[in-house]
Amino acid sequence: MSAENQQLVNVVIDGKAIQAPPSLSVIQALWHAGYPRVKGVGCLEGVCGSCRVLVRREGQEKVGMELGCQTLVEEGMQVLFLVFPNPTHHHYELGEIKNSWDVQAEFHRIFPEANSCRHCGGCYSACPKNINVELGVKLAGEGRFREAGELFVECIMCNLCMTGCPEAIAPNHVGLFARRVTAYFHARPSNLIHRLELLRKGELEVDCNSPGSQPDNAAN
């Protein structure tokens, strides 16, 4: 079952014909074959969104968008790394929104194109996490930020929906906006507030030489 004893598969990654064991991810296969790869590599665990790849499997017309660290090589597979920057083209600071009653209006000021969704579904089909991106944008447009934000829980900000959007909506940033305003305006945990109050009044000091922090007392 080790890499060396497995039947090798033939793949083409960034134009390089490579033989690799099928237990390797696309990135690992590239390294395995001795090719350098720095750009488009990140956490290697599928949460950072760096390693976006185009993937075409043998005999298929379809070309998919996937994450290179999460995609195992298969016989006849073609892979191409998509390395490009996606600067956000929106600029806002939560502090500028003075009142939670204004959030929806502010949203449309910050993301004016969010209303121009043409419902092509490209964002949804490009999402490696299968998030219903299009619905999220719609909900945000209706001011249903908490609901919209919930859809983006697993969003890794890979920006594939943003590149895929013909109306330049930046759906992932819309989703993140929805999540951020929800926390900013609505998270008011009373246990936290109470603790902050005690700290402010100086009722919770820390003794740097406390009995509980001495080796002898703590040896249990």
Partner: peptide
């Protein structure tokens, strides 16, 4: 000592940046 005293305010600061935490039915952390 500095870090543990910062703890609660760090959570507040993160919420102010727009970070969500899991809350109970009363909105407590």
């Amino acid at each position: 000592a500095a870090m543990v005293k910062d703890g609660p305010d760090v959570i507040r600061w993160l919420i102010q940046q727009g970070m969500q935490f899991d809350l109970d039915e009363f909105g407590d952390l």
